[in-house]
Structures are given as C-alpha cells and as structure tokens.
Design a protein around this nucleic acid. Structure first.
Lengths: 301, 301
DNA sequence: TGATAGTATCCGAAAATCGGATAGATCTCG
DNA sequence: CGAGATCTATCCGATTTTCGGATACTATCA
C-alpha cells in the first residue's frame, strides 16, 4: 500500500476530465506530475488503469473497478476533513445534557431531531433526573447544560434562562372521596394520602409541596399514576402526562384553589455559572425556546 | 486536505500501541517520524488529537471521533490494495457467461452463490439463449464461456467439456389422445402437433427433433408448457421443468421407445477454441462439474 | 533519587517532488 | 496528405520533504 491520496486524486481527476493534461489544469499542477502519479499508481497497484493507445487515455475494465474504490477513499478523506473543520470551529464532539423526567419526551424528540441535523457529527448523551438532580449534574460537570424544572428558583451555581412554563394538575381517581367535592382547598387535601416523586439521590420534595402527614414517596412516575388511578391517594402531576387519563375518565382533576401559583412550574435551561456557552448548548437553548413558544401558541389558539 | 495516508497510519498505530515510540517500532520507522507525523496531522486538521500532559499521550474527545474516520479511510485503502492485488493476479473484473435457458435456475443460483464467495470483486453478467445461441455468443466474444445444451455436438469453434446430462421427457395433456396409449412410437407422434422451441436468432431445431409436419415453433418455454397443458399438442421438455406438473396430474409423460438416446441431452461447458481459461471460467467449470455430480448422486440415491 | 521509557526538536544526508522543456504520437481540419 | 493543435512520457535541475539518529527534557516507577 504505497500509494498516496494525491495519486488517487490524480487518478479520479484524469478520469473525470478525460486527459492527464486537463487533470493537471484542474488540480493546478504540472502535467508531468499527473503522468508520473498515474504511472506510479499503476506500478504500485500492479494494474494498468488506462489504455494509452489513442490520443486520450481510456479506462481499462480494471481501472473502472478500482476507480470506484478510489472515489470512495477520497470521499472519506473529505468527510474527515470536514469533520475536523467542524471540531476545529469549536463544536464539541459530544454533547451531554441533563433533563428532568417530567419534560415531555415528544418535545425532546423534536429537539434532538433538529440537533442531529444541525450537528451531524456530535454524539449526544441524555441524563435524566428529577427534582434538583438536573442542576447537580450540570454543576458537577457531567453535563454541559440541563433542562430543569426548578423548585422555587433554579439550582445555585447555575446560570439559567426561562424557557416556558408547564402546567401541573392535581388528580385523583374518579371514585376517590376528593373527586366528589365541588371546591378543594389545601385543608381538604391534608387528611388524604399524597403521592409525591422522590429524587434518585435520596432527596424528597420541599415542604411547600407537602400538604399533610400521610405521604408516600415513590421514584417511579408511572407507578404513582397507577396508584392514584387505583384510589390510593392524590397527587400533582404534569398536565401532559395525565390529560389523556382525564379525557378517558380514568382520573379526575381536582378543582383546587390556592393563593400562590404552585401548580405551574417553570422550565429552565441551566448551565454552569460563568461558563461560556458552547455552540451546541447555545443552539439547544434557542431551539428549546422556539419549541416551547410554538407549543404554547398551538395550545392557546 | 493536506494529510497523507502515512499520517493516518501513524495516528491509528499510536492509538493502538499507546505511545508514539511503540507505534514507531510497529511501523518500523523512527520515533521522530511518528511525533512529527502526528504534529503535522494536528496542524493540518486544526484539532488536537492527543493530550501530552502525562507520560503516554491520551486521545482527546476530538481525537476519538476523528479516529473512527481515520480507521475507515485506512480500511478502504486496504480494500483497494487487496482488490488491486486480485486484479493483478489475473482475475478479471467482470465475468460474462452465456447460459442455455433450459438450465435449471436453481443450479445457476447455487453456482453464482459460490462464485460470489470465491470472487467477491468480480462483477457477473449472464446472457441467456436457446439452441445454438450459447455457442455463438461465446465465439463472438461477448461471453468468456457458456453452458450449452448442444444439438448433436457442441458448437464449432468452441472447446468444450462435458459436465453432465439432462433428462428430457415427452409430455402431453392428460386429455390428449396420445395420453391414452400404452406404447408410443415416433410414428404415433407424427400425426399430432409438436411444439418446439425456437432460437431468438431465428433458427429452429434440427430435423432430427421434428417428428411430423404439424409443428408450432415458439420462443417462450412457459408458453409451450401452457399450450401443451391445454391439449394443443405434445412436446419434449426438460424433466425438471415438468416433473411437478406430472406429479400434479397436469401433464402426463408419454412412454416413448426409440432406438437412439435423443431424450437425454448433454450439458457442456464451452469456451472459445484455443483461448486459455481465465481463473474465473476455470472455477466455473470445476464448480459446475461438482454441482452436477452432486445433483446426480442425490437423484440416484 | 536514580533508572526507565517516552516526547519534541534539531540536524545532515538522502530521496522525493516540483515545474519546465522536449520528443514522439495522435487527432482534426483544411 | 500535411500543418497545426493537443496529448503523453521522459528528462532535468532546483527545491522541498522525508528519513533516521542524536539530544534535551519530562513523566513515572521502584
């Protein structure tokens, strides 16, 4: 394997232009170089690539076959060069982002679809977590950015940008005693069992979210929904996760009236404080803002 | 795109051996060359491939991504080199063979399957014909070899090798008058319409095959079978093409008794007279002999 | 702290590559 | 048929690159 990339370029250029001289003109080299390049290539491969009987060289059948592979190699070389240019331009080879489990997966799919188009060479890793996990993962450096549903305010140590809001609704089973009430207040909720999610890092929800003393903590969102459906208690879940169940009558939304806006949570894009945004993370922030705005206008219209 | 194949080899060797020195030993070059090769590659790509903080260089994330593409390119280069070696060894880039239409396609499929394994780089072209066509195609040079079912003796101008024999049987529809006879002689056949194949070059069968004056010529084998099934006449067809129909009662075999062995035809491998066999055609001849022998022993046991 | 193994850089010799020039061949067109 | 245009192969000298070895410096391990 003594041939070089330039030899292969001379080969393909000669085929495409129809003569060694024209190939030399295209490549900006002396004609003698193309001639010797192809002669060397033929010696190296042990195969005659062109017939030289006529005025213009013509491909031999062997040359025609090897041409395919030569083109393939050059195409790969250009791909490597492109890829290197992209990396040299500061686009990171991998993007790791942390995402709250409550973010609708359809939204993430749409996001990542666009990401793959814009950054075809960048590998993606998604880490999911709940509650304060996302912020911690970002601060630890395991992820360059995160999509967080903060409790109160975004995690300390993170810069952040508000992307949009997400509705929560308080639900119970249709046969649950609370379902019969016309108006539900926090005092009415307190005696009944509340089901809340718990972080896989051993942290629960802040007290502001707890209404009574009968609390079950559970890490699995689907399990919580299942338990509520079976009448084991009530809980506050993202609207997009339960709207189908409410529609189908498997769950009912409790008409809760409270002073604060607990039941609408912020969606924040977060990244390590002070760190400049990479092109990928910047794109993610912009794309997320656009997606959330689109989904909101679609919902309201 | 100023990098060279050797730079990429230095790159992958350094990754695989874990150090520039070891890579130099593996490649049989001076250590300084690996060092400068990788430095040049980094300059050319504009990307730092290795971290040099420690004693041994370690891949950067960027280097890890570009490594994949470098390996891909080298793999393609080796493929080109292999392919060239095969072509240099005299294996032709394309093999064109002519085949009689009566040859069972299952046999050809088995043959070509083996061919693809033995000559993965050789393109195949199959030309089909009937009667004397195969020999003519071979003599004309359009095909390097052919599988012929000769009428009498193999085509003039061809060297040939006997591969095996193929049974023909004389068939008619179950409701055809001939089907009722206990013994069938050529004289009995003569009054009835005979259906024979005709070459697409405008040549019919030799007289030896024609039994009477009521002859229909038809180029299409399937159409002949259809006509015979509908009682339009009788014909002599390859056994493998009609055994299913006989089994199913759609056709009956006529118990013809003749002196000569007309109803078993030779299968010959033919090639242009005096021309030395290419490795591909030689292989084809051997493989065909083996396949036919196997199918024969299977049939007789 | 010394021994070992590795990297980067420098250096002179050797090899290749470069463009240009030239001779011979082929095709086109009058 | 012949002149002109165009092409390929080869040679040439100047330039550049490549080559292995030597050396200085660094990291790691015992």
């Amino acid at each position: 394997m003594g041939f070089s990339i330039e030899y292969l370029e001379a080969f393909t250029a000669a085929v495409e232009t129809g003569s060694f001289s024209a190939a030399a003109r295209r490549l900006g080299k002396a004609q003698s170089r193309i001639s010797t390049a192809i002669a060397n290539l033929e010696i190296d491969l042990g195969v005659e690539l062109f017939h030289r009987s006529g005025r213009y060289p013509t491909l031999t059948p062997q040359g025609e076959h090897l041409l395919r592979e030569a083109r393939e190699i050059l195409s790969r070389c250009r791909a490597l060069s492109n890829h290197a240019d992209i990396l040299a331009g500061g686009v990171p080879p991998t993007a790791c982002i942390a995402v709250d489990e409550l973010i609708p997966s359809s939204m993430l799919a749409e996001l990542l679809e666009g990401f793959a188009e814009t950054f075809p060479h960048t590998d993606v890793e998604i880490i999911t977590g709940v509650m304060g996990d996302v912020g911690k993962i970002v601060i630890s450096g395991r992820a360059e950015a995160g999509i967080e549903i903060p409790i109160g305010s975004p995690s300390k140590g993170c810069d952040w940008r508000l992307l949009g809001r997400m509705d929560f609704c308080v639900v119970a089973a249709p046969h649950h005693p609370l379902a019969a009430l016309k108006r539900v207040t926090p005092e009415k909720l307190a005696p009944h069992r509340q089901l809340v999610t718990i972080s896989n890092r051993g942290e629960g929800e802040p007290d502001a979210y707890l209404f009574g003393t009968r609390i079950w903590h559970c890490q699995s969102g689907p399990l919580i929904k299942e338990l509520i459906q079976r009448g084991q208690g009530w809980g506050s879940l993202p609207r997009h996760q339960v709207s189908d169940d409410i529609q189908a009558g498997r769950l009912v939304e409790l008409p809760l009236t409270v002073a604060g806006g607990y039941f609408q949570a912020d969606i924040c894009f977060v990244w390590e404080k002070g760190r400049p945004l990479l092109p990928t993370t910047e794109w993610l922030a912009e794309a997320l803002t656009a997606i959330l705005k689109a989904s909101h206008t679609k919902k309201t219209t």
